[in-house]
């Protein structure tokens, strides 16, 4: 038997794979049969119901699943990984600075604020151009800009830290 914690949309599911098609989802026992159609497609039988699921592996712990026009970003951890992850989250919450990450890949068009500037929550701090649109990023917290890791005109990857506020 193996046990996993699956996070989707900020909800957590405890999944125990018992073998013999038996699975416990948050203490509810279900009978499931899964067959692989291709590397990107699975058939999922739940009792008499059948679902065709498109899968996309994002990394070892993360899968994008498309079911009947609905999309789920699932993060799967073993119970041990989950415990480690929770400890890390508590640690990062106690730190007093926040990172401004690129919500999309794009080009850093303009830094409205510079290192050392005071910023208020919600104040525009930079312009990011993606797919020909200018997007204004606003400050996630109030404080002073500590570091800026990119220059104007540079391209940034999604989720990369552009600057930090403390």
């Amino acid at each position: 038997m193996s046990e996993y914690v699956v996070s989707i949309n900020q909800r957590k599911y405890s999944i125990q794979l018992l073998g013999n098609n038996e699975i416990i989802v948050n203490s509810k026992k279900i009978n499931v049969h899964v067959s692989k159609v291709s590397d990107y497609s699975f058939l999922f039988h739940l009792g008499n119901k059948v679902f065709e699921i498109t899968t996309n592996k994002i990394d070892q712990n993360r899968f994008g699943l498309l079911i009947d026009g609905w999309y789920y970003d699932t993060i799967v951890r073993t119970t041990l990984q989950e415990t480690v992850n929770e400890l890390q989250q508590i640690k990062s919450k106690t730190k007093h600075h926040s990172d401004v990450k690129a919500p999309m890949p794009g080009l850093l068009l303009k830094l409205i604020k510079q290192i050392g500037d005071e910023v208020k929550l919600g104040e525009p701090i930079l312009l990011l151009e993606a797919m020909k649109m200018e997007n204004e990023l606003r400050s996630p917290s109030s404080g002073r800009i500590k570091n800026i890791f990119y220059k104007e005109g540079q391209s940034v990857e999604k989720d990369s830290i552009i600057l930090t506020i403390e």
Binding site: Y4, V6, I8, N9, R11, Y13, I15, L17, I23, V25, I30, V32, V34, F42, F44, L46, F51, I53, T55, F63, L65, I67, W70, Y72, T74, I75, V76
Partner: peptide, 9 residues
């Protein structure tokens, strides 16, 4: 979503 969680695992 529940099905997604199971398939994810």
């Amino acid at each position: 979503e529940e099905i997604a969680a199971v398939l994810g695992a």
